[in-house]
């Protein structure tokens, strides 16, 4: 009896002991994990925090050694200066319109193209898809000069010259972006085509076949059956294309310099613009000299203003975005 009791308590003790060890191990790991995750999150957010802290500093604070992070004389003057010098409202609207246009067009074209690659067998499909990947690999610098010349005097087989007497001048406006987006040739569109194709490839064939049997045509099947379930993948593509178009400086500076005012170009030239703005403001005869620190402060303020709208969009979209990854089947 006694022995049996001892046995039972022993088992219990043993069990209890094991449980504690296990729990301790798990607790240890969750602490380590927490530290790692918080550390990385801090690392990611830090530069943006720095931007914000710098953007509210006054000129005195910059030269004050006792000020490292928190401004002693916080001010919003930097924002005022940067917004006027960048012509922020105008650039903002243009960028918004451009990014929306292009990302919607890219979404439509890449979805259609991706579906074509995923669901139809036709001659040359493998080769064409290899070319999709090649468009990603080729550095855009290789085709930048021909593209520039192409849009400078745009013509298709001399048709416009015949009708209008001269080729079209398309630089400086939306046209190059619209044309390239509509044909799946915009910024990183190869990647989007790839994502959409992978998604559709992962969908069961029976779904389509059932729709055909029920008498739906190919197009009807596409937009009634296939599209609604592709929303997560499409959302990912849309978010990528909107954000990358917003901050794109390559195509913007190639096609728009001297034309349409967009944020990315305005940001690239912001210190010059501010120097000119301050010169006009003070009415001085020579261009105002911005010290490197001061110019850096303005640049940080300006870049914060450029990403601020994106951060807001992300704040709203991230829930769907993060959730949708599980269903995107990017990798299917």
């Amino acid at each position: 009896m006694n022995a049996m009791l001892e046995k039972i308590t022993n088992i219990k003790l043993f069990g209890h002991h094991r449980l504690t060890g296990y729990t301790l191990g798990r607790l240890g790991w969750s602490i380590v994990r927490g530290v790692i995750i918080i550390g990385i999150c801090f690392l990611i957010l830090y530069p943006t925090m720095v931007k914000f802290l710098v953007s509210v500093m006054s000129e005195q604070d910059l030269y004050d050694i006792s000020v490292k992070y928190i401004a002693k004389n916080p001010t919003l003057d930097n924002y005022k200066t940067v917004i006027t010098a960048m012509k922020y409202p105008e650039a903002f609207w243009n960028t918004l319109k451009l990014s929306l246009f292009t990302s919607i067009m890219q979404l439509v074209s890449c979805t259609i193209i991706g579906y074509g690659f995923a669901r139809f067998k036709f001659k040359g499909r493998g080769l064409l898809f290899a070319l999709v990947i090649i468009t990603l690999i080729v550095p855009p610098q290789t085709i930048m000069i021909p593209l520039y010349l192409h849009f400078k005097d745009f013509d298709i087989l001399g048709i416009f010259k015949l009708i209008l007497g001269k080729p079209l001048k398309l630089l400086g406006g939306y046209a190059p972006f619209v044309l390239m987006s509509a044909t799946g040739m915009g910024l990183k569109n190869g990647l989007y085509i790839y994502i959409i194709r992978q998604f559709f490839r992962g969908m069961p064939k029976e779904l389509e076949e059932a729709a055909y049997v029920d008498g739906a045509g190919l197009f009807r099947t596409f937009y009634k059956i296939m599209l609604p379930s592709a929303v997560p993948a499409m959302l990912t593509v849309f978010l990528f294309s909107f954000v990358w178009q917003w901050t794109d400086s390559f195509y913007s500076s190639l096609f728009l310099s001297g034309g349409l005012r967009v944020l990315s170009n305005a940001l690239s030239g912001v210190s010059h613009a501010i120097a000119l703005h301050l010169t006009n403001l003070r009415g001085s005869a020579t261009t105002v000299y911005l010290s490197p620190v001061l110019s850096s402060m303005y640049i940080n303020t300006a870049s914060l203003l450029v990403i601020l709208p994106l951060l807001l969009v992300y704040l709203v979209a991230q829930r769907y975005f993060v959730e949708s990854i599980e269903r995107t089947g990017i990798v299917g």
Partner: peptide
């Protein structure tokens, strides 16, 4: 197969005009 070309057509046009030609 025909429809496949129709779906991929935008890409073929873009590939020729904005990629291979340049």
């Amino acid at each position: 197969a025909m429809m496949g070309y129709v779906f991929v057509l935008p890409f073929i046009i873009g590939l020729l005009t904005f990629f291979l030609f340049p």
